[in-house]
Design a protein around this nucleic acid. Structure first.
Lengths: 418, 418
DNA sequence: TCATTTAATTCAACCACTGAACAAATTACG
DNA sequence: CGTAATTTGTTCAGTGGTTGAATTAAATGA
């Protein structure tokens, strides 16, 4: 019997019938989501009013959640007026947690996020991984993951699942089809990580999800960013340019999980030829190599992080070539982003990955192009902002995707040991 | 030890609580959807097997559906082997129906679609509506709708809702912000149609939905097109160029309902200036006016339908200027569409509206650009096809959106009179 | 101190699904 | 031709989970 490894969200057309027990299953999720989304610890009565369920039902559901270590009673929120004081309910900080992993060109990262969304641990190992074989890289990653897990367990946390971000195309089953900057091609991550368990088995939560770095970074921003922007585009500027698309609070992955290829939107059809075969692709104007070349920096070989830092230093020092390069890149990016915003009617654009430290200089030209080209900008402005988590977005987003699964379907966790 | 953990897409969409009665409500929808999606009339036993519910439950649910005129028993499907013959279940053809309406530059349309998806009536009134005031136009539309309704009622149908397609931006509440080709600005459709009821009031179904023509046309293609393509882009070439985006079988409307503005994706940033303020927008290369001008046709004043027909005639006759114009337009369209397909990972592109009759000449250059520029085209080909419904897509799609609402939540209809 | 107010629990009633037994309607086979 | 096999659909007691009202709990205020 083979283990089922999952990669991306299943396009679940499953017309799930609602059986007797599903009722409780669904209400557990409803109540837990409400607790997670509240800005103030709600009481059972608050939850009853908000969900439309009876107080009796809410009490029963909450009892289950507390017994399963998903929810804890907090100090009563101070309330004016008479009446028995409410007992506030909050997500438990010592229950399940998610493990977020990231492999990138110049570092490995592992982080642990608990149910409340707090980043409990964050480990980063810097190293140039391009000369390292995939197997060795994943060995090092597994060691880092084990370290993070041990630290989490010491604090009483239980890792309920793991998500790995890679800078490349991932297909179902965790197969990395192509990660050009790492030099990976058809790397079967679950097989190479095979024996080493990263997390406890929990029903409904795959032990390891492998996903595109831009996708998970977008989830990280959804998780950490200011509330209210439920539809946004997260643009990651690395050597390639990837985008994570969040629509109505959910990551959109595309028909095959390969959405977000924004780097080859044409910004100048008669312009520079691109390795993809097209002409004038965005990547040739706003990709890292293009910016470095335009700034007069020879180091096309620099790891991603370092390159962005170098550019930020030069720009901060007022280097004219760098400033021009960033303005031009921002303009190209703005052209492409404006097209996307027009198409999808988004209200927010997040500059992440390598763009995060450069956002100060990239934003103005992006904003200029967007407000010039987006038809509805007059009625409803488009926000352009740097990533709240910066370069950590992907690992945190991966971990957050695990806890999100628990919150969306708590019965899987509750059915665990008990 | 690794166990088998199957991934399960979390389905629950609404944050609404699941109350006692919701159980039946949800299962009514599950069973009805199954019947609608089946290619052969299923028996109660088939449904039980497919949904996981008990045969007893399915029987009870089906009884409700039959009592509510949503489902009928059909002739038993011939089956080999022993056993009591099954009674096939099909959607009722004499129950609720949807009314689809369309206002366009040169015609008004109304159509009636029943639960089975059959177009029962389709009325079109050709007239140049640009000189007509919005109020007068809507008066005529109401008359046409009344005619369609009378015909439907004569056949025993009950109109459960109506959807109106307009070529413009629509905001919540049915306010048409801007329909440039009609010359409409801030037209309050519900108010102008005010007193005249278009459909019976049914719980959960708005009596009139006003939506962008491209959106409803995309729904029409989803309804009528070949199954299997649940994520596609429907491009409508009129004077402007609109796109309806269907993701995972659902129309994506954007944060404010204004998605699909594909006409201003830049295909040549240093090219022709556009009325939107940008440069080199797609509309200036593949819009109707641009194609007509390139083909050497003076009649920029032609109504949309006629223009497409004229171009098709000329192209069929082999007129060189027209053929070149169409190839160039197709190339520009292909550049833009390739960007969208890369971004959203779509597997199908539908050429509709004014493009439908021209698809024979537009498709090749579109396909060429798409296969050249879409990175994943090598792994999974992208289909480019003309709209199955042609110019009728929008009205039919509007009607189909009504019956879809009934199928997705039948309890609203059942709670009606019966 | 006692009425008032709000929070949370308890408990009988009820609704909808479950599972098994049964009736119905056909084919398979001796 | 008649009986067994087979599959469909219904009936009915049983059960899980929600409901609504009554009850208990814990505070404020006069």
């Amino acid at each position: 019997m083979t283990a089922v490894w999952q990669c991306q969200g299943v396009t679940s057309t499953s017309t799930g019938a609602v059986r007797q027990g599903s009722l409780r299953e669904l209400n557990l999720a409803v109540v837990l989501r409400r607790i997670a989304a509240a800005d103030r610890p709600p009481s059972r009565a608050d939850l009853a009013a908000a969900t439309g369920l009876t107080r009796a039902t809410v009490s029963a559901v909450v009892d289950d959640l507390i017994a399963g270590r998903l929810v804890t009673e907090a100090d009563p929120a101070p309330r004016a007026g008479a009446g028995r004081p409410a007992r506030g309910l909050v997500l438990a900080a010592d229950g399940p947690a998610g493990l977020g992993l990231e492999v990138n060109v110049d570092y490995l990262a592992a982080c642990v996020v608990d149910l409340t969304g707090t980043v409990r641990h964050h480990l980063v190992r810097r190293a140039d991984l391009r000369p390292v074989s995939p197997a060795d890289t994943l060995d090092r990653l597994a060691a880092l993951a084990a370290e993070a897990r041990a630290a989490a367990v010491r604090e009483g946390l239980t890792l309920a699942g793991a998500a790995l971000a890679v800078p490349g195309l991932v297909s179902d089953g965790g197969l990395v089809r192509l990660a050009p900057n790492l030099g990976w091609r058809d790397v079967d991550v679950p097989r190479l990580l095979g024996g080493r368990p990263l997390a406890e088995p929990v029903d409904g939560i795959p032990p390891l999800v492998v996903d595109n770095e831009a996708n998970l970074a977008a989830l990280g921003e959804l998780h950490a960013g200011p509330p209210g922007s439920a539809s946004f585009l997260h643009v990651s500027g690395e050597i390639g340019i990837g985008a994570g698309i969040v629509l109505d609070g959910a990551l959109y992955r595309g028909a095959r999980g390969w959405s977000g290829e924004i780097g080859h939107i044409p910004v100048d059809p008669r312009g520079r030829t691109c390795r993809c075969g097209g002409q004038g692709c965005l990547e040739r104007y706003a990709g890292q190599e293009a910016i470095l070349a335009a700034a007069g920096l020879p180091g096309a070989d620099l790891p991603a992080d370092t390159a962005a830092a170098r550019l930020a230093d030069l720009a901060a020092a007022g280097d004219p070539a760098t400033l021009t390069a960033l303005t031009d890149a921002g303009t190209a990016l703005g052209v492409a982003v404006a097209g996307v915003v027009n198409l999808l009617d988004l209200d927010t654009v997040v500059l992440g990955g390598g763009y995060a430290p450069l956002a100060r200089w990239l934003s103005p030209p992006v904003v200029a192009e967007v407000s010039r080209r987006v038809l509805t900008a007059a009625w409803a402005p488009v926000t352009v902002r740097p990533a709240a988590l910066g370069a950590q977005s992907a690992a945190v987003g991966g971990a957050a995707s695990v806890i999100r699964r628990i919150i969306d379907r708590p019965v899987g966790w509750l059915a665990r040991s008990g």
